[in-house]
Structure formats: structure tokens, C-alpha cells
Amino acid sequence: MPNTVRNAVANDIIAASGLNPLKAARETRGYTIEELSLTCGLAVGEIVDIEDGKDADPAKLRRIASALQMPEEELIRVPSTENRPTQQ
């Protein structure tokens, strides 16, 4: 699939219910795991581990987000301030 088509996919349709956000983003943009591996420079196994929830290395997630041309925040969830414990 040409990159122009991949880039035109809106982020709204990525939120497929029941799918890992990375897998949903990858599939929505038309990438196979092998293609994403070549694009971001990670091994296929590393991407599989991330999609399976076994690895959440922020550096790897940043590389994947860049390869998929999407905001890092879509893959790297930072806890909101209301969920953080307060210091007293």
C-alpha cells in the first residue's frame, strides 16, 4: 500500500474495540508486522511482544509511532494527574 494512502488514515478509526492500540494502528494503516519491522528497525519478535502486552519500552513505542506517523501519545499512555497519588 502506498505511503500516501497510509498517511491519509484518520486516527479516529484506530480505536477498534478489543484490539491493542498498536495492532489497531498498524492494521488500520495497512502494515504487516514485517513491514512495520522494516520501517521502524525493530525485530518482528519485538513488535509481536509489544502487541501481546509483554513489552512496553517507551523508546520502542516512540520508534513505532514515528514509523506509523502518529502521535507518540497514542501508544505511550502517561497516567493523568488525577490518578497519581498525592504527597501529603
Rank of each mutant, 00 (worst) to 15 (best):
L68E: 05
A67S: 06
D55R: 11
I50L: 02
I76V: 15
L61W: 01
L19I: 01
T81E: 13
E34K: 15
A56R: 13
P79H: 11
A56V: 10
P58R: 04
A43P: 01
N83Q: 15
E51K: 05
N7E: 15
T4D: 13
L22D: 04
E73N: 12
T39Q: 15
P21S: 07
E34P: 06
E72K: 11
M1E: 03
D57F: 09
M70F: 03
V9L: 09
T86W: 13
T28W: 01
I64H: 02
P2I: 09
T32W: 03
K54G: 03
N7H: 14
K23V: 01
T4W: 13
V78F: 10
E46Y: 06
P79T: 10
I13Q: 12
E27W: 00
E34L: 14
N20A: 05
V5D: 12
A8D: 14
A8R: 14
P71Y: 07
V9P: 02
P71T: 04
Q87R: 13
N83C: 14
L22P: 00
P71E: 10
V5M: 12
D55C: 03
L22I: 03
I47F: 07
G45M: 12
E34M: 11
A59S: 07
R6W: 08
L75R: 03
N3C: 07
E51M: 03
D49I: 00
E72H: 15
A15T: 09
E46H: 11
Y31C: 00
P79L: 12
L38M: 02
R62P: 01
I76T: 04
K60M: 08
A59F: 08
G30S: 08
I64C: 10
R26L: 04
T86I: 14
V78W: 09
V78N: 08
D57Y: 09
A67M: 05
V44E: 11
T28V: 06
K54T: 00
V78Y: 12
N3K: 10
E34I: 15
